[in-house]
Design a protein around this nucleic acid. Sequence first.
DNA 1: CTGTTAGCGCATTCAT
DNA 2: ATGAATGCGCTAACAG
Lengths: 356, 356
Amino acid sequence: MASIEDVARATGVSTATVSRALRGLGSVAEPTRVRVQRAAQTLGYVPSAAAASLASGRTKAVGLVTPHVSRWFFSVAIETIEAVLRTHGYDVLLVILPPGDQVRPGPGAIVPPSRPTIETELLRKRVDATVVLTLPLVHRELQTLRGLGHAVVNVGDVVPGLPSFGIDDVEVGRLATRHLLDLGHTDVHLVGGSGDEPGGWGPTRDRYVGYREVMEAAGLRARPAISCDLTVAEGRRAARELLARPALPTGLVATSDELAIGLLHELRLAGVAVPGDVSVVGVDDHPHAELHDLTTIAQPVAEQAEAAARWLLRLLGTAGPVAGRLPADWDRHVERLPTALVVRGSTARARVRQQR
Amino acid sequence: MASIEDVARATGVSTATVSRALRGLGSVAEPTRVRVQRAAQTLGYVPSAAAASLASGRTKAVGLVTPHVSRWFFSVAIETIEAVLRTHGYDVLLVILPPGDQVRPGPGAIVPPSRPTIETELLRKRVDATVVLTLPLVHRELQTLRGLGHAVVNVGDVVPGLPSFGIDDVEVGRLATRHLLDLGHTDVHLVGGSGDEPGGWGPTRDRYVGYREVMEAAGLRARPAISCDLTVAEGRRAARELLARPALPTGLVATSDELAIGLLHELRLAGVAVPGDVSVVGVDDHPHAELHDLTTIAQPVAEQAEAAARWLLRLLGTAGPVAGRLPADWDRHVERLPTALVVRGSTARARVRQQR
DNA sequence: CTGTTAGCGCATTCAT
DNA sequence: ATGAATGCGCTAACAG
């Protein structure tokens, strides 16, 4: 394993010059740089990340904390963020923190020796910054994240206290609901949690707020949300729950496409026509949405992720990993990317006088 | 930022003792250990990973190289591997290497300054071991991986030269094809690449081999594979290609469920009945397979991933990251996990005399 | 532009 | 069971 010293010896310069030359630090004569690079190449020299971190105080790594990998939003965000960060020389430390397994309080707390908590062994001192993907966060956990002492950015929703790149989830709820009302529907329910129930939070809660707002503005009754996780399986379960009731609503806002697909499937299995009897609108514009001819509210996932990663890189470029050197108000940055209604075949005009 | 020295001072012992106590090294008196731990907790001490790596020679991190995140197989494998490794104290460095962007030759090669190559900046010296998820690898690239100087394990297919945890893809091809032949089909095609075309490799190639073997053993004609990527969109494209031909086969082996779902959809759009006119069998047992009532060959993804991760941990436990200390024949380990036919509604008995 | 000198914070000898 | 000393490989001043 060649070290920087071997390269220095082979080139006849000091290790400092080797270090500078290999990092492209300007203050090296061109011929010297070329000789150093050639020698490094020949010797198969690879710098030790650990030694560089220790000496420089920066790890050139970013933590990526996500509750899921296999769900569309998260996998696309992960792919995008990794690509942007790696292109700019940063490693990505993947931390999967399932929803039940949230950020825990710091020192003093008794933690079972299973998974380490974010704040201690996980990210502190190991990374220069952290990207968080729509994690269910409560106040105390937020403090923990901010206490990491480095930049943290949130992707997907807007979390007060964290710089965020997300969408306007209230508007998402409004768009979906308004679309159904525009089609003449009056009995519209939302499926996917209101955020009031345990486990409900951020995006889901905001979408419900938008739903309720539009319903009430139209003089209609906002119904309690049908609470469930945003998966196909849960969508099917929710559909069965709806089918067990005396009457079906004519319009459904599902807070994700996967959920909507589950609804669609189970409703049709039960002989309910979509959109004949019930109109369904989802959220995401998942790649499968077109397949299922699903009307949905599209959100730009890759764009949110890319904007967050680039913003973080800019921050890391100016400031170091040291908290004190971060610009004031770095944590106040909020960007909301646009969403849009995509009309397909799962929604249709309500039948006139469809009373029962 | 408290350092080990602060803890030592606060406890009245040496840094060496702190180091031993905090890592549970046995050779520390119980009362001492307790005092040290308490002090560390109070001071909010977090060891520096960089310093520990530099001093010990091990990074306590594992590289995870994958061509995709958003495809089912890969996302499940990633979730599983991360969970197992983190539970055992290892960080996971995520490296996404899109198929076009494969491992490149080592020193001497001219590489555009876009993404770094695996072997140089990426993994060497940054991790103690590497997990590779079914990457398209050619011989020279394999050498590169083996040249990393640490343990490498492959998940998903069996790559000669790498310890592998996968399935028997030839058998997968056999199972799917035999199922169709058992139903009386004689005109059976495989969709999803034979591995002969550019971009075709491992799993896909082997599944075709199994297909061909069963066809020929039955005295039937094995057709050239219809080559395409394993996605819904590509499945739809492949279906259109098939529909443009003078006659449709009565049986289709799709080398992935997503592919099969695309086929199903596009065929039905064109008025072809599945399984009435054409039977389709997929591979994976994707969560959506049941939704589409898809007959498929199930493969245990989480089990493959978990077995590989545990095996790697065992290797890391005995040997260090240093190649010389790896046990002989560590790279000969191969495990194949069982696959199984899951019969659903996308396959049916061939119509008798269904000539045209 | 380049060399010299100090550490970065820990794990690990080798003592005791 | 514990302490003192050493060095992992590099970067960052500071000189020159």
